[in-house]
């Protein structure tokens, strides 16, 4: 029998119990998130599949983020190149700039920057949208009309962020490299072909795989956090604002922790 999860308010807030209550609520949240993830894996494979909703969410997550990601990626490429040049120039090693940019962008910057932008733009959007639907009883309305709201709203959004983040991450990397190329070309007159040949010569198969895995994990994290916060929004419009805000803050926090852990694992595999 599937028991419904009921959201209760905070535990009694007497001063002396405040700290222990916060710790208890923290562990309840952790348990809630794990239950949420478990339900995602259970529901994602089970028909009927909400294909049109998944495509719509992929469009929202991917296509609608392109403008912001293009601008950010391009500027990061230029600024990172400009900031790195003086240090390399002091060793007479400006010819290493394309390789340096290639490694930095593919290995770390592209997935991380894309994830942070997505956490801010998409995570907050999901948190606010689902939070608003929760407090205005639209999610309950879906449930009583015999539609599974978790499948329609959460599974589609989590799949969309998980699938789109790697694509957006590669797009960010490409745009950042283009930005870097403009700067390198303006200063060192390096050709397009020579720049990209130098940039990719240091990139290994492991780097590419690690970058894709990072983006997948970040996308999944942003989707799960946004949906979890939205589905558990309470207390009217104030709760919607809080859901959006917490979706961003928690996503970013988790993305940084995941980045650190994945880098450790990849460095271990690389033998460093």
């Amino acid at each position: 029998m599937e028991k419904k999860k009921e959201v209760y308010g905070s535990v009694p807030s007497q001063k002396k119990h405040r700290i222990s209550n916060k710790i208890t609520n923290f562990f309840i949240s952790i348990y809630g998130i794990f239950q949420f993830i478990k339900r995602f894996f259970k529901e994602a494979w089970r028909p009927p599949y909400e294909v049109s909703e998944i495509i719509k969410q992929c469009y929202n997550v991917g296509y609608r983020s392109l403008a912001l990601i293009s601008l950010t990626g391009f500027i990061i490429g230029i600024v990172f190149t400009k900031q790195s040049r003086p240090s390399l120039a002091s060793f007479g090693a400006t010819s290493w700039l394309p390789s340096l940019i290639g490694i930095a962008v593919i290995r770390a910057l592209a997935p991380l920057i894309t994830a942070l932008i997505a956490a801010g733009k998409i995570g907050s959007n999901i948190g606010a949208e689902l939070g608003s639907m929760k407090v205005t009883e639209q999610i309950d309305a879906m449930e009583v009309s015999a539609t599974n709201p978790f499948k329609f709203l959460a599974v589609s959004r989590i799949l969309a962020t998980t699938l789109m983040l790697p694509l957006l991450s590669f797009y960010t990397a490409f745009i950042a490299m283009i930005g870097s190329f403009f700067n390198v070309h303006a200063n060192e007159s390096t050709s397009f072909t020579a720049f990209f040949k130098d940039a990719f010569i240091q990139i290994s198969f492991l780097d590419l795989n690690a970058s894709i895995i990072k983006a997948l994990v970040f996308g999944f994290t942003i989707g799960v956090t946004g949906c979890y916060k939205g589905f558990n929004a309470t207390k009217g419009t104030e709760g919607v604002g809080r859901a959006a805000n917490e979706a961003v803050v928690v996503s970013m926090f988790l993305v940084f922790i995941e980045e650190m852990l994945i880098v450790q694992v990849v460095n271990y595999l690389r033998g460093m």
Binding site: T136, A141, M142, A146
Partner: peptide, 16 residues
């Protein structure tokens, strides 16, 4: 069972 129950919400709960 829910296919046989209609629920009209206080806020109407139309999908915005």
């Amino acid at each position: 069972l829910r296919l046989k129950i209609g629920f009209s919400f206080q806020s109407s709960a139309l999908y915005d």
